[in-house]
Simulated scan of single mutants.
Amino acid sequence: MRTRFTEAISRYVRVAPFPHMTTISMAGLSLLCGAEASLESDSGNRFLAAVFWVLSALFAWGILLCQADALSRFREFERVRATLRRYGFKPRILRPVSSSRCQRDAALLAASETGFRAQAHRYFRELGYRWYHILPDRIVANPLYFFHPDFLRSTFLPRRSTQE
């Protein structure tokens, strides 16, 4: 029998599978770089040790960013789920969360839990999205948009929708 805690953890992981997989990958890379930095330090190569320590720290920072993204997707999932429960399926509810794979995953889980998965899947498919469309639309159009404050704000601080 599953407890509420294990169900909550399972839901949190299913809401944002890509950020969680990236977190695991970055944790492994951070550990490997840290181990290599330690080995280089022991062998007396301070320059390479410093390079690997910096890489390890950067990967650790990436872990924090991935988890911030996952938490944001979870908040978005809760908002979309509540909106779907309140108003039923309306495409305008899903339109703001259709531009990235992480957002679509969260919206599809919310739709699944409210009984609208088929409609949501069909809506995203009609918009032209397939399983391999992972990067956000804005990043595909302009890779430097990743550093734009609007992108960072929309990624880590999702806004309330006007439908609520």
Rank of each mutant, 00 (worst) to 15 (best):
R86G: 06
S99V: 08
Q67N: 13
V51H: 01
V51M: 08
F77N: 10
G34R: 01
A37W: 03
E76K: 10
G62D: 04
E78V: 11
L58G: 10
H20A: 06
N45F: 09
E36D: 10
R95T: 08
W61K: 12
M26G: 02
R75Q: 15
A60P: 02
A70E: 01
R79M: 14
W53M: 04
W61N: 12
L32V: 02
G44W: 00
V54Q: 04
R75Y: 14
G88L: 10
F52A: 01
A57W: 02
V54L: 14
G28T: 02
F52D: 03
R86C: 13
I93E: 03
Y87Q: 13
R81Q: 14
M26R: 07
D69Y: 07
L29N: 12
F89N: 06
F47K: 06
R79G: 08
W53A: 05
A27C: 06
I24S: 14
M26C: 10
L71H: 14
K90D: 09
S41M: 13
L32N: 03
F59M: 12
P91L: 02
F59G: 00
P19L: 12
R101T: 01
L55C: 14
F59C: 09
F89I: 06
F89S: 06
G34N: 06
A57F: 08
P91D: 00
A37D: 07
T23P: 00
F89M: 05
S30V: 02
I63L: 06
R73Q: 15
F74I: 06
R101H: 11
M26Y: 09
L58I: 12
F59E: 05
F77C: 13
F47E: 12
G34I: 01
Q103V: 09
F89K: 03
S38F: 13
H20P: 01
A70Y: 02
V54S: 08
A60G: 05
R73H: 11
G88A: 09
S99Y: 10
L48Q: 09
A70M: 07
L29K: 11
L32R: 00
D69V: 12
S72Q: 05
A57L: 10
F18K: 09
V54R: 01
G62V: 10
C102T: 15
W61P: 01
I63P: 03
A60R: 01
V54N: 02
E36P: 00
K90M: 12
S43W: 10
A27F: 08
G28C: 03
E40C: 13
S100H: 05
V54E: 06
A50S: 15
M26A: 12
Q67L: 15
A49N: 05
A50G: 14
L31C: 02
P19D: 10
Q67D: 08
S38G: 07
G28M: 05
A35N: 04
T22P: 03
H20M: 07
I93N: 03
F52R: 00
R73P: 07
A35W: 08
G44T: 00
I93R: 01
L31K: 01
K90Q: 13
R101N: 08
L58D: 08
A68P: 01
R86K: 15
L58C: 12
V51S: 01
S43N: 11
R46W: 12
T23K: 02
Q103Y: 11
